[in-house]
Design a protein around this nucleic acid. Sequence first.
RNA 1: GCGGCCAUAGCUCAGUUGGUUAGAGCACUUGAUUGUGAUUCAAGGGGUCGCGGGUUCGAGUCCCGUUGGCCGCCCCA
Length: 436
Amino acid sequence: MATFQSLPGFRDFYPDDLSRRNYIFRLWRQTASAFGFSEYDAPVLEPLDLYKAKSGDEIEAQLFSFTDKGGREVALRPEMTPTVCRLVGAKANALKRPIKWFSIAEFYRYERMQKGRGRCFNQLNADIFGEPGPEAELELLALLVQSLCSFGLTSEDFYVRLSDRNLWFFYLEALGLDEARIRGVLGAVDRYEKYGEDAFKGYTEQYGALDPELKAKVIGFLQIKSLAALEETLATMTDDKITARLADWRSLLGSLDAMGLSQFIQVDFGVVRGLAYYTGFVFEAFDRKGELRAIAGGGRYDDLVAKLGGPDLPAVGFAIGDMTFALLLEQRGLMPAMVQTVDVYCVIGGPAERTAAFAAIQSLRASGFRVEYPLKDVAFGKQFKAASEAGARLALIYGSDELAKGVVKLRDMNDRSEREVPIAEIVSAVRDTLSG
RNA sequence: GCGGCCAUAGCUCAGUUGGUUAGAGCACUUGAUUGUGAUUCAAGGGGUCGCGGGUUCGAGUCCCGUUGGCCGCCCCA
């Protein structure tokens, strides 16, 4: 047993772990690029105040934070949103709109571990700045769905619950609640699915029991699961804000339908998301079986860039965490085993053949082929076994008989056929065989 | 921050009411095999039984503490 181990909640990535992580990152990156998003990155360490400004002082308990040697209060980033707001805010006037950015990065939170949650994890973050209309939500929802579908997941495996904090606000306002009470009610709505009636306990303690008629309306609203139900509930309301908002909903759902994504989207006003900075559409992706934590979450946060010192800039974004996502892929058998593929395995007869092989090994590698060979002289049988286990497609056989004729043998490991190739033509022969 | 369960080899796990030198399978290394991928067989390396203390003639086993893990609560950006 080693004397040192990794810190609680942190993960080591041995080669086969890392190959799985790389697989996920590669498809995320490909997908985000296909949707026209540009990749960025930023420091892991940020000023503590960046997070306090966004989320309040309580956030510090859940951060890896400390005072650096220059006396600065700093924290490891627990999320990307404040950072990307800082980046975009600083150059907002110079950036072409819409600003579509993504990143794949590691985050740190000082929390107790649970299934699908550790103290360090990776996320794909994607955000659009500068577009106030639902066209931005459309892009992000489409990207979110495709970021999961790229791995072979389907609408049988996951879905995205779509809700709207604006409409909640407008509705509760129209029912006569002030802002503080609205936030209290939204807190209860957030918990309702889990605790039922008890979800309103906190509200009752703070503001007194909610009027029964009002409470019934709240519960009715959080049970809305379709645009039709939404329109029906709001039919008697003539408020301009509500009318305009319903138009946004029709536009967004219509466009999602045109993209063929309807089967992934579930209107669900039971989702409000905990944090208060969301200002419009909010959404969360879940596995259909409901066994795992949320796979992804996001929404609109039009006030945040300005709140962090930048210009007024509308924004929408989402994040997919790697831990729950990896659990889902494993559950569905969609996580590939590590495939360490080798193009060419060089089988070497002895010391003299080894020296003769080095030139070809070097040229093949310089040409970009993945080439392996045994570092020590071992029996032929072992070498072929090693070639097979390494997943080599070709074996290049350097034996004394072949070298005497000025050739090497090229063996196709799949169909076991062999042919002789002049030493000068090895690279082109390998290239032809592998591409053919 | 709170609660439940757990900790023996790289992995999955045995280990008798407390009793000699702590075991198996898989994995790894080597050999049988001096020119062809399988199977098989043989051998080998690897553990101060998470750590610390206590009870005892004697502790992997019982007790206390601690650290770590899994799960749940809080929280979930």
